[in-house]
Write a protein that binds this DNA or RNA. Structure first.
Lengths: 155, 155
DNA sequence: TCGAATTCCGACTGAATCTGTCGGGATTAC
DNA sequence: GTAATCCCGACAGATTCAGTCGGAATTCGA
């Protein structure tokens, strides 16, 4: 039972974007270097985050990615759903299609076992419900003057 | 983010053993048939459960498996740890080696991100801590007379 | 207008894990 | 002795992981 690196890398990417929120788009190369992650792999991840409207992209030179809204308004459960798929310890206990009660419990012990998966799922969901990206972005850099960057960035 | 069928099948197996607790060993073939699961696959799972001393085996004819102790004394977290490995949403957040604080947080965003994985891990752990196998074994069959079985089992 | 920087996108791949299957050996009750 | 059962290791197809690669499309700035 574990998340994959998709989840880890993707969250780290989002945290970086959270720190830079308000400074315009950041290129993937920049973030990949700072987090020491393979840029082509991050590309895959950020595309799904974009499709989910969690980040927006700007093409062309000086383009990049930025959060689609402030970190406080980005629930971590949404981030993880995009990266890792629905929070479902077992197929019978999906969180997204919670309304669609499929009667997959035809065998004897299954129904009672579902109780376990649902408890686990709910535990994760409620934990994540209370968290936004802002909780993971402690050192928020205030909108920076591009002048002060120039000297310390590329020596 | 999901458990594998190891977890599902294994738990279903344990529930079956819970229902039969007190009736002597049950053969795998019996349980596999009742739960409609591949017996050779269950063999693999039950061996690790045996190695973890959650079930005991009796070899030879009329042998089989049974719980090593009553369902009330079998915490579900122990069952899932055996079947699925340590409860760790990410490598940096293992539950078993919680004492060994490895300083894997050398990069910038990692430390803050660990906070997330640890919260998730703790949510699962505390949920599971309160559950034993007895919670999943509602219809407990009292020790059965082998005579009544004989006619209804193999017609 | 050209070139550099960037996103966009699909295809490919080696390794690992999942989900089993198979075949036989060891042990025990009858 | 024989049938039932556990024990155990090897194998294998499918899927996912964790990337890599190459190039097309877009945009900014000189």
């Amino acid at each position: 039972m574990s998340f994959s690196t998709k989840g880890e890398y993707g969250v780290r990417l989002m945290v970086q974007l959270g720190r830079r929120y308000g400074s315009g788009p950041s290129s993937l190369a920049e973030i990949a270097a700072e987090e020491d992650l393979p840029r082509p792999y991050l590309e895959q991840l950020v595309m799904s985050l974009r499709d989910a409207d969690l980040v927006t992209s700007t093409r062309g030179s000086h383009g990049g990615y930025e959060l689609s809204r402030p970190p406080e308004q980005i629930p971590m459960i949404a981030v993880l759903r995009v990266l890792e798929g629905p929070i479902a310890p077992m197929i019978c206990a999906t969180d997204e299609s919670a309304a669609a009660h499929e009667p997959t419990c035809d065998r004897t012990a299954r129904c009672t076992v579902n109780f376990l998966w649902i408890r686990i799922r709910d535990a994760i969901s409620t934990t994540l419900d209370g968290m936004t990206l802002a909780d993971l972005v402690p050192e928020r850099v205030p909108p920076i003057q591009p002048i002060s960057l120039q000297e310390s960035r590329h020596p």
